[in-house]
Every structure is written in C-alpha cells, then in structure tokens.
Amino acid sequence: MAEQVALSRTQVCGILREELFQGDAFHQSDTHIFIIMGASGDLAKKKIYPTIWWLFRDGLLPENTFIVGYARSRLTVADIRKQSEPFFKATPEEKLKLEDFFARNSYVAGQYDDAASYQRLNSHMNALHLGSQANRLFYLALPPTVYEAVTKNIHESCMSQIGWNRIIVEKPFGRDLQSSDRLSNHISSLFREDQIYRIDHYLGKEMVQNLMVLRFANRIFGPIWNRDNIACVILTFKEPFGTEGRGGYFDEFGIIRDVMQNHLLQMLCLVAMEKPASTNSDDVRDEKVKVLKCISEVQANNVVLGQYVGNPDGEGEATKGYLDDPTVPRGSTTATFAAVVLYVENERWDGVPFILRCGKALNERKAEVRLQFHDVAGDIFHQQCKRNELVIRVQPNEAVYTKMMTKKPGMFFNPEESELDLTYGNRYKNVKLPDAYERLILDVFCGSQMHFVRSDELREAWRIFTPLLHQIELEKPKPIPYIYGSRGPTEADELMKRVGFQYEGTYKWVNP
C-alpha cells in the first residue's frame, strides 16, 4: 500500500466541504435556525453545542446559521458558553472563530407547556436576519415526558411559513410498544414523516454505516452471507464503567431499553437485511423493517440478565456495585447486563442465532459485530482449526478484520490463527472521521433520513421486546451478580454456547 501524504486539518475539512456542497440537498446560502429545546441540560452542553461548534469551526454548516437555545432556566448566552465550552476542545488559535460562533447564538427562556412562551420564541426567531423565511431545525434534547406539549406548541407557534421545518427526537422513544405508539401517533398528527428525525446516534458511527458497503459492494461476501456458512452472529456493546452516581436515570430504563432495543437491534438489521433497491432512505429502511418483521418476540429462556457488584480487589469506582450508587433505588432489580438470542425467521437466516450482548462495568470498552462461520467440513488438521470470524469493530479503534487459519512457519503443516486486517487509523491517516452527532446533524440539514429511525421500524423493535420488558417488570427477577471489570455473568457464556457459538479464547485482536 502506497504511503499517504499527511494533510493538514484545513485540507481534510476542505475535502469534506467539497463532498457536502456538491450535493443538491445542502442549501449552503439559505438562512437556517437550529433550535435546541432543553438548552440547559446535560445532553445540550456535552453533545449538541459542542457538535454545532465543530461543524461551524470546520465550515460545514450553511453560511447563515443561527443557534437558539430554549429552556425553562433563566440563562444568558454567557451562561450557555460557560457550561458548554469546556466540552468544545477549542484551541487558543480558534479564539476569534469561537467569538464568531457565540455571536450567532441567542437564548430564550420559557415554559414547555405555555403557548405564550412559544409565541415569544417565534418572535425572537423572526427578528433574526431573514428569520421569518429561514429553515428551522428543532432538536428535542428533553425528557420524553414533555415531548407531547413541546411538539404541539412548536407546531402551533414556531413553524417557518416559507422555509422547511424538521424536528429531531432523542431516544428513548417511549418505554414499550404502547407508549411508543402513543408518542408516534401524537407526533405524526403534527408533522409529516419526512419532517421527523428520530435519532439513534449509533447509526451515525462510521463502521455501522460501513456495514452496507461491506455487504453490498464486495462480491466475495454475497455468496457466504447466509445460514449455510454463518453459524452465529454476535452483536456486542461493552462499557468498562458503571453508573457513577447517575444511576437514578438509568434505573428508569435499564440496559435493554438503553442499548439493546435500539443500538444493537439497528446493527442487527444492517447485518441481516436484503440488498435495498438503492441507497435512498426509504429503500434502506424498507429492508430493515422486513428483517424486524421476521423476528419473533424474545423468549425468556433465551435471556440472561445481570447486575454488577463491587470488586473487592478493585480501586475507586470498581469497588462499588450498582446498588451502592446513592441515586439507585434500594434493592433495585434493574439489569445492567443483558444477553438475548433472537432468530430472523426467513430463508437466508433460518436457524442462525443472533446474540445481542450489552452491559456496564465490564472488562473493556468495545462495540462490534462478529460473524462466526461454520467449521470446515472434512477436517484434515486433527481438530487444530478454529472457526473463521469476520469482525466489524465499531469502537474504539474502528477496524474490519477476518480471523482465519494460516500455516505456522516451519517444517510442518501446523495451522495457527491469524488475521486479515483493515484498521482505519492506519489505512486512512488523512481522513477526519466525523463524530456520530456531527454526521447525523449534517444529515438533518441535508434532509437525508437514511440513518434515522422510521415509525414502522420503531414499532417493530418495541413489538419484539415489550413482552419481555413487561414480564421483567411484573416478576422482578433478581439479576445474576457479576463482578465489576469482569466479562459479565458466566451464564451468558453458557447461553451463547448452547445456541452454537464457540468461544476459543486463544486469539485476541490487537490494534496495530
């Protein structure tokens, strides 16, 4: 592979701008107003304001973009700056750019259920340069409990009458099928589907988006991507930290609602779906819905739930269990780990287990898709061969690698495990991989909904998990304890083995 010439960040961002501006969906010269509902909250200060700053800094926003914060707290732009700027990672050389960014910011205080507050917000936006005809993007960085009041008031008082209007809704989209349907029906009564952007930030990850290209742009994968060759698929999300004093919020939802029903299920769809007619948003989402419709409700015998306990040999936070978090209700049975087996009941995947695993306070930070292939028929190497695996590593250190057998150097035919490896950090030294939120917010500006969740996708996802969630809430089974920093409950490994996964433990990928 030829040595790549190092590029400056300015040059890299210039390439990104060229890609972005050559499309006809990006209205570079139009006025846009980006409204952050819930501007005083954690999500706004840690993710949304920093993301908008990065896009502005790199010249990736339309030229005439204004940012308006809205929340109940009586704040000023200076207050917003004070709480969000520490997350910007701005350099001293960017000081003038930073001043320009905050000059485009404003803030309006108001209630979430008060019509007069929204009329005041609308008047404020109209007073901005060309504000009355601007395109408006409303980001709901809010708890779902206020979605209905907020969307109703936005629709009645704050819509642009000339430009387009788009609304970005953060997960969780309800707690179960019934609450999700209620919320979807409410929002759909106010906005068209092409105006609604239900954001799952995992769909903005580079390697998640790469799944489609790997599958449908490489001839070698087509013939082997089926039940005849693939023994099982494992989708993993692991965090090495616990709730760390923020367990009160987590306890309301648990690990299945927080990660599995959305992030992991979306990745499953991209692995299992048929080739779409095109890369058009609805063509892709149509195929994802077909996959979900082929999955039956989760069966309790295919589920393992766990909850982390303190590690007596650990240090600091590792010595504390979930129930030691003062914000967690006493005696909570909320799971911090889950392993679930699903089956896609169609011709391509009949009988292939899709194993979804996620948890907190585990032994490493990792998100990946792992396809394990069947054993080689007619073994001539005296059971020395391990199964081939194709691994798409989402985070950290984005990579695609194939675990395969090669001859060990020497005189004899002794096979050993090795890999074919594409590590993004080595291959793409001159490429700026956008943060997931950067990519998705740019998608909203461009009107691309491919990486957002459609209402029928959402409904099918909740259909699969709601009976299990209701059973857990009714019966309150005690989750299996696992030690902070471990791989999780051993019962999860036993479940995976029972459905056909072979864990060798003899080879570990190392970032080159």
Rank of each mutant, 00 (worst) to 15 (best):
K89M: 11
R166Y: 00
N122H: 15
D200E: 04
E85R: 05
T51D: 04
L16W: 09
L7F: 15
D200R: 02
S188W: 01
F191Y: 15
L235A: 08
E94V: 06
D228L: 08
F101H: 00
A217V: 05
H129P: 15
F87W: 12
D58E: 12
V77F: 14
A71L: 03
I36E: 01
T151S: 13
I234Q: 15
K46M: 04
G131A: 13
H201M: 02
Q133R: 15
T91Y: 09
M37A: 15
A141T: 06
E206T: 06
R81P: 05
E252L: 09
L20W: 06
Q178E: 13
L235I: 13
R246C: 04
S160I: 10
F253Y: 11
K97W: 03
R215G: 00
H129K: 15
H186A: 13
D30N: 13
Y147S: 00
L16K: 15
S73V: 00
N226T: 08
V108E: 07
S179N: 04
D24N: 13
D114V: 13
I162N: 13
H129A: 14
A109V: 12
V233A: 06
W164S: 07
F250Q: 01
V68C: 08
R72A: 02
G222L: 10
I230F: 06
I199L: 02
D114W: 09
A141V: 00
I224C: 11
S123I: 15
G254W: 00
S40G: 08
F26M: 12
E148W: 12
I67Q: 03
F138T: 07
G204W: 02
G69D: 03
L75S: 09
F173V: 06
S84E: 08
V150H: 04
S117E: 11
F34A: 06
Q22V: 11
W225D: 01
F241K: 03
E63H: 14
L98V: 14
Y107P: 02
N126F: 09
P50V: 04
F191A: 02
Y118E: 04
L177G: 08
L43D: 02
L183K: 03
E193K: 04
V68L: 08
R120H: 12
S29E: 13
G163H: 10
K89Y: 08
H124W: 10
Q195M: 10
T65W: 07
T236G: 02
R182C: 12
E99D: 15
I187M: 12
N64H: 12
T145F: 10
D113F: 13
R120V: 13
P86K: 09
R104D: 00
M159D: 09
R175I: 08
S117N: 15
G163P: 05
V208Q: 00
A71Q: 03
F216K: 04
N229V: 07
V146G: 02
I35T: 10
A127K: 13
I168E: 04
F253T: 04
E19T: 15
V150Y: 04
I67K: 04
Q195D: 09
P172A: 02
S189V: 08
E193M: 00
A44W: 04
R136I: 07
Q119A: 12
L140H: 07
M207Y: 02
S180C: 06
A149V: 14
Q178S: 15
M125P: 02
W225A: 01
R182E: 15
Y139D: 05
R246P: 02
D30M: 08
Q22L: 15
E244I: 11
A103K: 14
D30L: 12
Q83P: 05
A39Y: 02
L98K: 05
N122P: 00
M37N: 06
E193T: 03
F221G: 00
H155I: 03
R9S: 15
I255L: 07
K152E: 13
R246V: 03
P144K: 01
I15G: 07
A141R: 02
R182I: 12
L61C: 07
Y202W: 02
K171T: 03
P143Y: 05
N122R: 14
D113Y: 14
A44Y: 03
I196L: 12
K46C: 01
L55Q: 09
F191C: 05
F87R: 06
R166Q: 00
T151G: 08
G242C: 03
R219L: 06
L55T: 08
T145E: 00
I224F: 06
I33Y: 12
F21T: 13
T243L: 08
A149K: 14
R215E: 01
L203D: 02
F101A: 03
A116Q: 12
G59Q: 07
T10S: 15
I36W: 05
N135W: 04
S184Q: 12
Y112N: 02
R219N: 08
F241T: 05
I234T: 15
G222K: 10
I199K: 00
R57M: 04
S157G: 14
A71T: 03
Q28M: 10
I255Q: 05
Q195A: 11
E148R: 10
N135M: 14
V108W: 07
L190A: 09
N153R: 13
L142N: 04
F173M: 07
Y139P: 05
D42R: 00
K95A: 14
G254C: 04
L75Q: 11
S73Q: 08
I255P: 05
Y112E: 00
R227Y: 09
E93L: 08
R219F: 08
D100G: 10
R74M: 14
E206R: 05
R227A: 09
A109P: 11
E244V: 13
R120E: 14
F66Q: 10
E193F: 03
I67T: 02
N153G: 12
L7E: 15
K171F: 04
D30V: 09
L137A: 11
F56R: 02
E93Y: 11
N122D: 12
T91G: 11
V108D: 02
F101C: 03
A127Q: 15
F216N: 01
Y107L: 08
R198H: 03
S84P: 03
E19F: 15
N226V: 05
I36V: 10
S189L: 11
I80V: 14
E193D: 02
R57F: 01
N122T: 12
T65G: 03
G222M: 11
S29F: 13
D58P: 03
K97C: 08
G59S: 08
E148K: 10
K46T: 02
R9I: 15
I33W: 08
A116D: 15
F102Q: 05
A2E: 10
I199W: 03
D79T: 10
Q83H: 13
A71H: 02
F241I: 11
N105G: 02
A115C: 15
R136F: 13
S189Y: 10
R215V: 02
V108G: 02
Y202I: 02
E19M: 15
W53Y: 11
F237Q: 07
F216Q: 05
R219Q: 08
V12I: 15
G254V: 01
E244R: 08
R17I: 09
A6V: 15
V77A: 07
R182G: 13
L190K: 12
R175A: 09
R136K: 09
E85P: 03
L190V: 12
W53A: 00
F138R: 02
E170Y: 01
G204Q: 01
L61P: 00
L16Y: 15
M159Y: 10
W164A: 06
R227N: 09
R81V: 10
E94G: 03
E193W: 02
I36G: 02
P92H: 14
G242K: 02
L128Y: 09
M207P: 04
S106Q: 11
Y70S: 09
G174H: 04
R17S: 15
V146K: 10
Q11W: 08
A231V: 06
E252F: 07
I234S: 12
K152T: 10
H27N: 15
T91V: 15
F101V: 00
A149M: 15
V213E: 03
L43Q: 03
S189K: 10
P50G: 05
T243F: 00
A115D: 13
E63N: 10
T91L: 12
V233C: 09
P50K: 08
